[in-house]
Design a binder for these strands. Structure first.
Lengths: 210, 210
DNA sequence: GGCCTAATGTAACAAATGTTACGCAAAGAA
DNA sequence: TTCTTTGCGTAACATTTGTTACATTAGGCC
C-alpha cells in the first residue's frame, strides 16, 4: 500500500516527509458508494488520496443536493483542511465515486509541516488553489450553462474521473447531482442519444462522441 | 493612514509584523466604482483591505457576469493569493464597491511570512477558509434559490456591505450582478415594493423590512 | 420652457425548466 | 413461472425566467 504513497507523492515530497507520513498516517480503504464525510461531521484527519476518486457535494436545508467537484489521487480536500483548522463542522459530503485508498493525517501534523517542509507548504497552497478553481468552475456551470449543457459537462467530467466511457449511472442519480428532476434529465439524455452522442442502457450510459 | 492598519490588523498581528507591513506595503486609495483587478491581469501584490468594500465578480466567454462575493476591511482576497502563488492570470474582477483604502504587499513577502509569523500563517489560512465559505454560499444561491429569493439576498447583502438601507443602485446593475435581465429584476422589485419590503426610487432602493 | 437621455413600468409573448401522471420493460425475488 | 421493484419513456400541463416592444417619467442641460 505504501508504494502508492511513493508513486503519487514521491515526486512532491522529500523522503523525510514521506517517512513521517508513513509513520503517522492511517491507511484507509473505502468501497465505491461509501460515505466518507457527511454534513456536520467533525473532522480530525486530513485525507491524502492514493487511489480512486471522491465526489464532493453540498446540500441545502430542504435536502436538495448539488455536486461540487471530484477529487482524484494526488489530491486532498481543501474543505477538509478548512474544517480542521477552523474546528468547524463539515459543510460538505464526501462520497467514494470509485474504490478508494487514502491515508489519514492527524490535523496537528498538517499544521506543523507547513512550517517544517516547504514542499508540504506548497502542496497545501496548491490544494487550496485547485479547490477554489473548481468551485469557480461549479459556479460558472450554474450561472452560465443551461440544463442540456450542464448534463453534457457532467457526462464529460464523469468519463474523465472514472476513466471509462461506460458510465454506471441512473437518470435519477444525475438529477440529484445537478439538482434537477429525473424527467428533465431523461428528456435531455434522450435528445443526446438521438444526436448520436450517447447510447442509453438500463443503469448505464455509453458516451460516444464528445 | 497607518492607524487604519493598527486598527484593523493590530489585534491579529504582532508588532514586528505590523512594522514589516508598514515598511514594505504600499498604501493605495481607490474611488468607488474603480476597477482594481480585471480578468487576465497578472498579480504581483497581495492587497490588505483597510477601509471600504470590494466586489468580486466572474465573467464567462460571452461577457455575461456574475457577482461572487464582497470583501471587507480586515480581509484579503484569496483568489489573489491563488494568482500570486501560481503565477497565473486572474480569474476574477475586483471593483471598489465603496471608497477603498488598501495596502499592497509584495508576493515574495507573503510567502516568506507564512514561515516566519504564526499569526500571518493563521491569517492566510483563515482567508482561504472565508473565501471557500463565501464561494459555497454563492453556489447555494445559484443552485437552490429562485430569482426573487436571490434578489432579496442581494439586497440584504448589499445593505450589510454599504452599512446603509438606502442603496444607490439601478435595476440594470442588479441584473448584471445576478446575470439576469433588467425587466425580470424590475418585475421582482415591484412585487417586493407592493409587499412593503422596499421602496423604489430613481437610482435608489430603500430597504424597509428585511 | 423644451429637448435629450437614462431609468423605470408593464404587457404580451417565448423559451426553459419543473411537475404530474401513467405505461412499459428489465431484473431480481419468491 | 409470477410478482415486485426499479428504471426509463413520454405526454400534458404548470411555473419560472427571459425577451421584445413600447410608454412614461425624472433629471440634466440648453
Amino acid at each position: 500500500m505504501e508504494d502508492l504513497l511513493e508513486l503519487n507523492y514521491g515526486y512532491l515530497f522529500e523522503e523525510e516527509l514521506i517517512n513521517e507520513i508513513k509513520a503517522l498516517g492511517a491507511i484507509k480503504h473505502v468501497e465505491a458508494g461509501d460515505r466518507l464525510i457527511d454534513f456536520g461531521d467533525h473532522i480530525k484527519f486530513m485525507p491524502l488520496l492514493l487511489k480512486g476518486a471522491i465526489k464532493i457535494s453540498r446540500q441545502d436545508d430542504n435536502g436538495d443536493e448539488i455536486l461540487l467537484y471530484f477529487i482524484e489521487k494526488g489530491d486532498t480536500c481543501a474543505m477538509t483542511m478548512t474544517c480542521c483548522l477552523g474546528q468547524k463542522k463539515s459543510e460538505i459530503r464526501a462520497t467514494a465515486e470509485t474504490e478508494v485508498e487514502l491515508i489519514m493525517i492527524p490535523v496537528e501534523k498538517m499544521n506543523e509541516w507547513v512550517v517544517t517542509y516547504k514542499t508540504w507548504r506548497n502542496f497545501v497552497f496548491e490544494s487550496y488553489n485547485s479547490r477554489l478553481t473548481e468551485m469557480l468552475e461549479a459556479i460558472d456551470s450554474l450561472a452560465f450553462l443551461n440544463m442540456p449543457e450542464r448534463v453534457e459537462k457532467y457526462l464529460r467530467d464523469k468519463v474523465m474521473i472514472v476513466k471509462d466511457t461506460e458510465l454506471n449511472v441512473t437518470h435519477q442519480e444525475i438529477a440529484y447531482d445537478l439538482n434537477s428532476s429525473r424527467v428533465v434529465i431523461s428528456r435531455i439524455l434522450k435528445k443526446l442519444e438521438k444526436e448520436g452522442k450517447i447510447e442509453l442502457l438500463r443503469n448505464k450510459i455509453k458516451v460516444l462522441d464528445f
